[in-house]
């Protein structure tokens, strides 16, 4: 297996783990971790995409930007999780759902 194939398989695996994790995770902090996994697979996908298309510069610069943007989202999500822990006393998702319909 070439390095390229390894990378493609890694992207697919990370994506699969991320999506599966979203389905089964019930803890807010863990959900943020799973989201990070999902985005990291996309970052890797961009590096691979840049390489495949013969413009590695584009892929790499985009990947760096995504890491920054994604960190902001993670910070916001974690800040909300902190507030949830303070108001609800739990991070378990089934215990904090009250809005229905």
């Amino acid at each position: 297996m070439t390095l390229f194939n390894v990378l493609i398989v890694t992207v697919a695996c990370l994506l699969g783990v991320g999506l599966y994790g979203l389905l089964i995770t019930r803890n807010l902090i863990k959900i943020v971790v799973v989201l990070q996994l999902l985005v990291k697979s996309v970052v890797l996908a961009f590096v691979v995409a840049g390489k495949v298309s013969g413009h590695p510069g584009i892929g790499e610069s985009v990947a760096a930007t995504i890491i920054v943007a994604d960190t902001i989202v993670a910070v916001v999500a974690l800040a909300l999780a902190v507030q949830v822990r303070i108001r609800f006393g739990t991070l378990d998702i089934p215990k904090i759902s009250s809005l229905r319909g």
Partner: peptide, 19 residues
């Protein structure tokens, strides 16, 4: 609590969408 719950749902779903 309602706003926090709505915000959390919104963040998680939007983040998956944008990924």
């Amino acid at each position: 609590p309602g706003s926090l719950e709505a915000g959390m749902k919104y963040v998680v779903q939007s983040a998956v969408g944008s990924a």
